[in-house]
C-alpha cells in the first residue's frame, strides 16, 4: 500500500497544455502514473501526446474517469482551479504552484472541510509513491520503493533526505511534500495519520523547518496517537529571526517557532531528531537494522 496516490490513481492535470504542466505531466506519465486527461479551458478536443484535453474538470471526471487532480496553473488562478476540481467530484487535489494568495487559501481550506477531499499544497513538490504513481515535480529516480514514509514542508530538502535514505538502501512507501505556505491543504498531522493507517509504512521521517507551530502540534499528536516510530529533522537552527507574522502571530501558537523549540517539543514526545539530513537517515537505518 501507499498513501494519497497509488496504482488506482487516475490523474487529470489542470493546465496540461502549459509549459510546466506539459513537462511535468508527461514526466509523471513516463514514471508510470495513469494520466487520463488534461484540462485547459478553450483547448477541449486537443490532446497532449495522446492524452485527451477537456475544457472542464467535470468532463475529465465523466469521460475519462479522473479521480485525482494535479493543479498546474499559476498562483493567482490556483484557488479557482482547486474549487473546480473539488466541485467536479475529484477526491485528491495536489496543487504545485507558489504565490497563491493566503486569503484565497484560507477560504479554500475552510470550504473543503467536511467534503471528504484530500488537498496537498499549494507551493509543494507533490506526492510520490515509488513504483506506483508520481504526481507533481519530485524527481522519481532518486527514490525507491520501501517502507519509510516521508513527509516534509520543503521540496529540495525532501530530495536530499530521500537521497540519503536511498544511499543507505532504504526505500519509501510514499513521499509527501505538504508545502511551506501559511495555509496548506494538509498538515503534518493529516499525513502522519494516513501513514499510521498504512500497514506498509513501518517508519516515518518528518522534515520540518522554522516558523509556525505545525511541528510542535505534530509532536503532541505523535506522542498521544501514534505507534509507528517517527524520526525528525528540522532546518533553520542558525537562521536569523526571519520575517515572521509580527507579534500577534507568535502568541497565538504560544511557540516561538524556532528550530530549538521544535526540537525540544519533538524530543519531549520521544521522537529522535537528527542534526543533519545525513544523520537522520542514519538513525532510521540503524532502527531498521541496516548496517551503516
Amino acid at each position: 500500500m501507499a498513501i494519497i496516490v497509488d496504482s488506482d490513481t487516475r490523474l487529470v492535470v489542470q493546465g496540461l497544455t502549459g509549459r510546466e504542466g506539459r513537462f511535468h505531466g508527461l514526466r509523471n506519465k513516463a514514471y508510470g502514473t495513469n494520466l487520463v486527461a488534461g484540462v485547459t479551458p478553450g483547448k477541449g478536443g486537443q490532446d497532449v501526446e495522446g492524452v485527451p484535453v477537456f475544457n472542464t474538470v467535470l468532463e475529465a471526471v465523466e469521460e475519462a474517469g479522473a479521480n485525482t487532480s494535479l493543479v498546474f496553473v499559476p498562483g493567482p488562478y490556483s484557488a479557482d482551479a482547486i474549487y473546480e476540481a473539488v466541485d467536479s467530484g475529484i477526491g485528491t487535489v495536489i496543487a504545485i504552484a507558489e504565490h497563491v494568495p493566503a486569503h484565497e487559501m484560507l477560504r479554500v481550506y475552510n470550504y473543503i472541510q467536511g467534503r471528504g477531499v484530500t488537498l496537498i499544497g499549494p507551493n509543494c513538490p507533490g506526492v510520490l509513491s515509488p513504483e506506483k504513481a508520481n504526481v507533481g515535480i519530485i524527481p522519481g529516480e532518486i527514490f525507491s520503493e520501501g517502507k519509510i514514509g516521508l513527509v516534509s514542508r520543503s521540496g529540495t530538502l525532501t530530495y536530499q533526505i530521500g537521497h540519503e535514505l536511498t544511499q543507505l538502501g532504504l526505500g519509501n512507501s510514499t513521499i509527501v511534500g505538504i508545502g511551506g505556505d501559511p495555509v496548506v491543504g494538509s498538515s503534518f498531522i493529516d499525513i502522519l495519520q494516513k501513514f499510521e493507517d498504512d500497514p506498509e509504512t513501518e517508519r516515518i521521517v518528518m522534515v520540518g523547518e522554522i516558523g509556525g507551530d505545525e511541528e510542535e502540534k505534530a509532536a503532541r499528536f505523535i506522542g498521544a496517537e501514534m505507534s509507528t516510530p517517527v524520526f525528525a529533522y528540522i532546518a533553520g537552527f542558525t537562521a536569523p529571526p526571519g520575517k515572521t507574522m509580527g507579534h500577534a502571530g507568535a502568541i497565538i501558537s504560544g511557540s516561538s517557532g524556532t528550530a530549538e523549540a521544535k526540537k525540544e517539543a519533538l524530543e519531549a514526545a520521544g521522537i529522535t531528531v537528527g542534526t543533519t539530513p545525513t544523520e537522520v537517515a542514519q538513525l532510521v537505518a540503524e532502527a531498521a537494522g541496516v548496517t551503516v
Binding site: 516534509s152 514542508r153 520543503s154 529540495t156 530538502l157 532546518a235 533553520g236 537562521a239 543533519t276 539530513p277
Partner: peptide
C-alpha cells in the same frame, strides 16, 4: 528554502 536553511546549519 529548506535546503538552504539546512546548509546554513
Amino acid at each position: 528554502a529548506g535546503l538552504v536553511m539546512s546548509t546554513l546549519d
